[in-house]
Amino acid sequence: MDLNALVFSFFNLQIALEYLPDILKGMVVTVELGLVVAITGLVVGMALAVLRALQLKPLNFFIICFADIMRALPPLVVIMMLFFAFPYIQISMSAFTATWLALSLVLAAFVEEICWAGIVSVPKGQSEAARSTGLSWLQSMLYVVLPQAVRLTVAPLTNRVIAITKSTALGSVVGLSEVLNNSQSAMSNSGNATPLMLGAIGCLLIFIPVVLLGRWTETRFRWKQ
């Protein structure tokens, strides 16, 4: 392997400068999409988990089906369904919307299952103790069960949020102008792999801090032994 060829193809300064704006624009889209997906997914997922704690059979059936289906389907399939299939029944949406909706629904399903597992694993004795001092169901949930459930769920939640926000790259398959798509186009246009290298570095710049943040939250929320 020729070192010069490597530098020319992957670390070409001239091409890098030329296409940097496009890459940066793509990174902005990636970050925006990631944030919106994370927030939507977390909020919807947590709400579903608390609803599930109400123990209403018909509602639970729907929640469980939703969670199972969205965790079984590959996210790319969901994106494609929304973007390519739904227009045939008069529901059209942009690549951004399709990707956002698909990934949010998938994340919500995982968040619901993780939060539910957390609620269920708080020992029954905790809510019994709270109820036997006169606290209502809601008070027992808010002050005793949920705070303890949260500590158990932080690690799996951060992992899952990271995994799903990385999937924003899938939007490139339906033409979303996020970082991967822009890098690929630039690479085709220039006939050089440097834009792709930039794109990869851009992804690392976005997601390595997220991963490190995830590690930090994990250690902080462990029970003090």
Binding site: Q126, E128, S132, G134, V144, Q148
Partner: peptide, 30 residues
Amino acid sequence: RQNIGMVFQHFNLYRHMSVLDNVTLALRKV
């Protein structure tokens, strides 16, 4: 239930609260 105290075999103290908060939670909220 506030008239009936219950002491459990496995204590069931709230792990995420201090001892004082454990004792005063119902006093404050109920």
